[in-house]
């Protein structure tokens, strides 16, 4: 039985997810601690060319599984192919990102292989040779260290929680011979948001609006996000009011984000909202109420009217970026 580490990369629409490079980089770090090889695998159709890029993030071997039925993600097809690869390679650890697809396939693999799963991990280390993952529980109110007592241990890594390191690996390319029956489930269509939109969970900057937005007009928040190359989020009340789609919601019942910079505009700062953004590196709050709870946990606060202050911040940022170019 090998003790290698297998990293599953996600490839869609011509690119690897940024979160996949984080998974590869953490996989490389763990492989070095154990003195084992890092295997990277990617599933899709016509992906061999792109897959070679994974060598830049430390992959010793790259296993590309190509098949027309793997073009769009479906739990059935991906679980089958990945389970086969894992059974053949017998890695000690399987890592993937805690994206919707990563969490999905990790759960299916955990059941198929009867292997322990820790999802949404923030850090990984070893104790007496066993993997221990730090992960949030109870809506982020608690951090738990969980030990995986059987192999392979399956871990999904929260996007933006692990550093990307470019380290060249040998990157030997192998094609996995995929044999698939047509799946029961079929993908009918993908309805994607406007292209160029930064994905909330992977964005380096998130600017969110809350009840203080007072209506559907999020243009000041959108302009600031755009100046920073970031994504727009929303509090639960802004979503409940119908001002923003559910997919923009940050918080305990929405998305969990960990950007470098989180700017909360007109958000009072309920505990459930913090559950969705408290691992951000820097939090900025802008609120006209000096007593708003958001100020008690923000690194920087401005008391003022967001409709006045936010456009001025956008202007200052454009000025700064213009000057530094």
């Amino acid at each position: 039985m090998s003790q290698d580490i297998l990293a599953i990369a996600e490839y869609a629409n011509g690119v690897f997810r940024k979160a996949s490079y984080e998974v590869l980089s953490e996989g490389r770090r763990l492989a070095d601690i154990l003195g084992v090889k890092l295997l990277a695998t990617v599933l899709g159709n016509d992906i061999q060319g792109a897959a070679s890029r994974l060598a830049e993030y430390g992959a010793d071997r790259i296993i590309a599984a190509e098949h027309p039925l793997l073009k769009d993600y479906l739990p059935e097809t991906c679980t089958q192919v990945l389970a086969e690869i894992i059974q053949k390679e017998t890695p000690a650890l399987v890592l993937t990102s805690a994206t919707t697809q990563g969490k999905d396939v990790a759960a299916c693999l955990s059941a198929r292989l009867y292997a322990p799963l820790a999802t949404d991990c923030l850090a990984i280390h070893f104790e007496d040779g066993k993997p221990v993952a730090t992960r949030p529980m109870y809506g982020g109110k608690v951090l738990a260290d969980v030990r995986l007592d059987a192999t392979p241990g399956i871990l999904t890594l929260r996007p933006n929680a692990f550093a990307i390191r470019k380290i060249a690996g040998a990157g030997t390319m192998e094609l996995y011979p995929v044999a698939l029956e047509p799946p029961q489930t079929s993908c009918i269509e993908m309805q994607m948001d406007a292209s160029g939109k930064v994905e909330l969970t992977e964005a380096d900057v998130v600017v969110s609006g809350g009840r203080g937005m007072g209506g559907k007009d999020f243009s000041v928040v959108e302009a600031l996000a755009s100046a920073l190359g970031g994504a727009v989020g929303a509090s639960r009340s802004a979503v409940d009011e119908g001002w923003r789609p559910v997919s923009d919601q940050v918080g305990q019942t929405g998305k969990v984000v960990s950007p470098s910079l989180y700017i909360a505009c007109g958000i009072s700062g309920a505990i459930q909202h913090f559950a969705g953004m408290q691992t951000s590196k820097v939090i900025v709050a802008i609120n006209k109420d000096p007593e708003a709870p958001v100020f008690s946990r923000a690194d920087y606060g401005i008391v003022g009217d967001l409709f006045e202050v936010v456009p001025l911040i956008t202007e200052e940022i454009r000025h700064l970026k213009g000057d530094s170019q």
């Binding site: 322990p116 799963l117 608690v142 738990a144 007592d149 100020f295």
Partner: peptide, 24 residues
């Protein structure tokens, strides 16, 4: 197959600086 070996509260974020200046 998996054991919680310890639990702790995340480090609570502290209030930072309220930026005070004359104008917005």
């Amino acid at each position: 197959l998996m054991q919680v070996i310890s639990m702790r509260f995340p480090e609570k974020r502290k209030a930072g600086k309220i930026i005070d200046a004359a104008t917005p």
